[in-house]
């Protein structure tokens, strides 16, 4: 277990999601994972971004309001959703064919840990007490290897202050070397061949403070700035 450090105030989960929404380009197909990634959908209304739900749907609309719920229309988190102009349905098998086939421009995923090499650990928390091959894999492994770009959305440390950006993942990995961008409550970090590049810091934080809660050595971008929303 990584070392515990003091915690800082940063962006809310909603604002992490907004920062990621700003990173997404128009004209792209995007899959949002469970947790903070799902919140990204609140910030892309009116944008030319198509959301895929791995249950078998493209152009997934907003969450269904009360009275609008159709039990045959849910997303991969079992939330009732709605149709949009352009919605189409397909089987789960086809859904994963398009994911592995490289058609997802971006997957936004949550994580328990991310390594400096872009390894992602997000599907299994061994603290639950099962052998490490037993857990809720869901669609995360397919998305992590299939999407052209994987963005991780997470809090920078755990509630207990354990570090989540680490040299090497201690938890079972979802995929190896796939993460391209990490957006947390404290920072925006690019994963590059040379290492982790600190691109943006939360308002009021210094790069040294971000480094103090990040295990690998951060490379400070020459264009370092505050996170702008």
């Amino acid at each position: 277990m990584a070392e515990k450090r003091r915690q800082f105030d940063g962006l809310s989960r909603e604002l992490i999601a907004l920062r990621i929404a700003n990173e997404l380009e128009d004209g792209t197909y995007v899959n949002l994972g469970i947790g903070i990634p799902t919140l990204v959908s609140n910030w892309i209304e009116g944008r030319d971004i198509v959301l895929q739900a791995e249950i078998g749907m493209l152009n997934t609309g907003p969450l269904a309001a009360q009275g609008q719920v159709d039990q045959d229309l849910i997303n991969a988190s079992c939330q009732p959703v709605t149709e949009m102009p352009g919605t189409c349905y397909f089987s789960d098998c086809e859904s994963f064919a398009m994911i592995r086939g490289g058609y997802m421009d971006v997957a936004v995923l949550g994580a328990l840990q991310v390594s400096e090499k872009g390894d992602l650990a997000g599907w299994n928390n061994p603290e639950r007490g099962f052998p490490e091959h037993i857990g809720n894999i869901g669609g995360s492994m397919d998305l992590a290897v299939g999407a052209r770009k994987v963005i991780v959305a997470m809090e920078h440390t755990t509630r207990n202050g354990d570090l989540k950006i680490v040299k090497k993942c201690a938890y079972p990995v979802t995929a190896v070397g796939v993460v391209k961008l990490i957006v947390t409550d404290l920072a925006v970090i690019d994963v590059t061949d040379k290492g982790l590049v600190l691109r943006e810091v939360a308002p009021g934080l210094t790069p040294e403070e971000v480094q103090s809660v990040t295990e690998p050595k951060l490379i400070i971008s020459p264009d370092l700035r505050e996170i702008r929303l």
Binding site: S91, S95, F96, I99, F130, I137, M141
Partner: peptide
């Protein structure tokens, strides 16, 4: 039941499972 060893559990990634 899984913890008690009464049910054996095999887990696959979703895409692999259905493929």
């Amino acid at each position: 039941a899984v913890r008690a060893g009464q049910v054996e559990l095999e887990v696959y990634p979703m895409g692999t499972f259905i493929e």
